[in-house]
Amino acid sequence: MTVQDLVDKLNLKVLSGADGIGGKIAGCHVSDLISDVVGNAKEGDAWITLQSHRNIVAAALLKKLSCIILVNGIEPSAQARSMSNNENIPILSTQSTTFETTGLIYNLLSDKL
């Protein structure tokens, strides 16, 4: 599954980093602690979070994550947005909660995990 597929299936809004939308999603990591993502996320994971400052893009870049999904309609900071455009790491947005978003993605990925 690509980031684009996920955007279509979950009706996500692409806020920035649209050039990275063809990337493959290998799995998913759910966390609001950036050190936990740096320690435990795996390459290709889609990352569900409510953190919105620019460190999210740095962490995603370091761990080669496929995309960042912001829940509850949260908007990224201006710096996070411009870093995501520079690094081609898509930041996606949903009005749904972490619980709902995680459940939907789990169903989409569970046969592949």
């Binding site: 602690l33 950036i34 050190s35 993502v37 740096v38 400052h53 620019r54 460190n55 962490a59 900071s77």
Partner: peptide, 14 residues
């Protein structure tokens, strides 16, 4: 009152 973070820590807020 003082509070501090490690400068290079991932979880230091902006």
């Amino acid at each position: 009152l003082s509070f501090w973070y490690a400068h290079n820590h991932w979880d230091r807020p902006p």
